[in-house]
Write a protein that binds this DNA or RNA. Structure first.
Ligand SMILES: [Mn+2]
Ligand SMILES: [Mn+2]
Ligand SMILES: [Mn+2]
Ligand SMILES: [Mn+2]
Lengths: 152, 152
DNA sequence: TAGATAAATTAGCCATGTCTAACTTTTTAC
DNA sequence: GTAAAAAGTTAGACATGGCTAATTTATCTA
C-alpha cells in the first residue's frame, strides 16, 4: 500500500527486469543509432531520385539540415559500406544493396507515420516523431502497427 | 493509375513536405540524441536508489551494458550538468533537477511500454523498443498514447 | 567563351560516447 | 589489522557525425 501518493499517481506499472535483459535493450538502441545515418541517407536519396530525378549533395544537406561537408563525408562512408555509387562532383546513385535498404526504410517510415496519424496526431508531429522512432521499431512492433492500420 | 504494381503494393501514402520542415525533423532527432545519455542515466539512477538503496557505478555499468570507465566519465558530465551530486568513490545522488528529470523520464518510459503492451507486443520487445522510442516521443504523441490507454 | 556564381571537396577542428590498460581507493575476509 | 578482492578512476585511444575556412570543379550567363 501507500501507492496512492499525494499528487503523482502511478498509472502504469514498472516492469522490472534482469540486468542483462536491460543491458541488451540499451545495446539494441546503440546498434540502431549506428545504422541510423545510413538509413536516413539512403531513404532520402531514393526519394530525391524519384521526385527530382537525381540526388545532389546540396539538396541532401538542405533536407537533413546539415552543411555540405557533412554530406560529402557521410556519402563517402556510405560508398565504403557499399550502399552508394558515385564519382566526385557528380550525382549520387544507390547500389542494389542501397536500393534494398531504402525500400525497407521508406516502407517502415510510412508505416510509422500512418500509425501515428491513426492515433489522431497531426501531420507535422507525426513526421517529426517518426523520424526518430522508425529506427527503434522492431519487426514485431512494426507488424503490430500494420495490423492495427489494416484492421481499422 | 499505375498505383497497383506487380509485387510491392503501396499501403500508406507518403507525406511530402517542405525541405525546411524535413530538416527541422532531423534536427529534432539530433537534439533528442543529445539528451539521451542524461535521461537514461538519471532514470536508471533513480530506479537503483529506489530498489537497491543506492546507485553505484558498477551496477549502472552492468545495467547499461557498458564498462565502468564509461560510467565514470558520463557521471562527471551529469555532475557538470547539475543533475547529479557525488564525491569520488562514493554512491551517486540526484540533485533536485536530476530527480525532476528522472520523474519525467520514468513516467514517459512506463507510458511507452504500457502502450506497446496494449498493442499485444510481448514484454521483452516492448521494453527493448521503448528504450529507444521514449526519446523521440513528443508531448503530443505521449498524450495520444495515454489517452488510448485510459480509454481502453 | 570568359567571368561570375554555385556546388562540391578537402583539411582540420570539436564534442560525444565508447573502449583497454594501468593505477588508486575502498571493502571484505581472515 | 593486514592482505586480497572489488570497485572506481585516470590516461589515452578511437569512431562518429557535426562544424568552418579555404580550395577546386562545374554550371550559368552575359
Ligand atoms: Mn530517421
Ligand atoms: Mn534514437
Ligand atoms: Mn532510453
Ligand atoms: Mn528508459
Amino acid at each position: 500500500m501507500t501507492k496512492l501518493q499525494s499528487h503523482g499517481r502511478e498509472p502504469f506499472e514498472a516492469v522490472d527486469r534482469a540486468p542483462e535483459a536491460q543491458a541488451e535493450g540499451f545495446a539494441t538502441v546503440r546498434q540502431a543509432h549506428e545504422s541510423e545515418m545510413a538509413e536516413d541517407y539512403v531513404e532520402l536519396i531514393a526519394e530525391l531520385i524519384e521526385t527530382r530525378g537525381e540526388a545532389r549533395p546540396v539538396e541532401i544537406a538542405e533536407r537533413l539540415g546539415v552543411k555540405p561537408p557533412t554530406v560529402t563525408k557521410n556519402i563517402s562512408r556510405l560508398k565504403a559500406a557499399g550502399l552508394v555509387r558515385r564519382e566526385p562532383y557528380r550525382a549520387i546513385f544507390l547500389t542494389q544493396a542501397g536500393q534494398d535498404l531504402a525500400e525497407i526504410c521508406r516502407r517502415r517510415h510510412r508505416v510509422v507515420v500512418a500509425f501515428l496519424l491513426s492515433l489522431g496526431i497531426d501531420e507535422e508531429t507525426a513526421e517529426r516523431d517518426a523520424e526518430g522512432i522508425e529506427h527503434h521499431v522492431s519487426q514485431t512492433t512494426l507488424e503490430a502497427f500494420e495490423s492495427r492500420l489494416n484492421q481499422k
